[in-house]
Design a protein around this nucleic acid. Structure first.
Lengths: 119, 119
DNA sequence: CCGAATCCTTTAGGATACTG
DNA sequence: CAGTATCCTAAAGGATTCGG
């Protein structure tokens, strides 16, 4: 990667939260309740086991997510947000706000285009 | 793509600002001064013409960036942030803040690991 | 000067089968 | 239950050449 101005470190932040399933994984974990692997999986319809583990491992690597293994049969593993991961909450909230208005805006523009098409 | 909870629209926001060069492109344009294609290119060492145009087109599509063509020989094209694109400023600032501390944190952890390795 | 077009490489993401 | 291991596809990114 290239050198960036010190004032432009939001690329670094993006690296931690970008990934097809990371937004929704984080959303669920930020509810506060620890979730087991299969619970999380059920909350993410369409995700494969592989992708879920990959994304969780990445979040774990950044210490955003904590993985707790209960040594028992059958296995039980719980994922939860870390204290540090909680610091993402306001960041994601801000992004969320912008995302909502952005989506609405695009929808509005689309409707206007379809309207004027019939003129 | 899957369905997401309405409370989790930050994935939509990410779509607009993710891309290898988008963060740094936005950083430069958010300085406020319109920049010509080749000016921008010089500010982004390593980028190819193709990638620069592709990313700019995407940002233009979202109406985050405005493209003004001056019909003259040799051609002159200026890119600038739109009014709407300005609304990204606080969002990116928040991301930036988190990115800075996150980078520092990772660096710190790395140093500690190297320290304890010699014990 | 500001691209478009073509072709190629790399990475992200996915399908499927298997395991302690 | 909670994963690995393999193999494969699609998408992002890049190198190079050509053109108004």
């Amino acid at each position: 990667m290239q050198k960036k101005p010190a004032q432009c470190q939001f690329g670094a932040a993006l690296d931690s939260i970008v990934g097809k399933w990371k937004p929704i994984i984080l959303y669920h974990l930020l509810q506060g309740k620890p979730l087991r692997f299969n619970e999380l999986r059920r909350l993410l319809p369409g995700i494969t086991q592989r992708m879920l583990t990959l994304h969780l491992r990445e979040l774990e690597e950044e210490e955003i997510v904590k993985r707790v293994i209960y040594p028992q049969i059958p296995p039980k593993v719980e994922y939860s947000i870390t204290e540090y991961g909680m610091s993402l909450s306001p960041v994601l909230e801000t992004l969320h706000q912008w995302g909502v208005t952005h989506t609405e805006r695009k929808q509005l523009i689309k409707e206007i285009n379809e309207q004027t098409k019939t003129d």
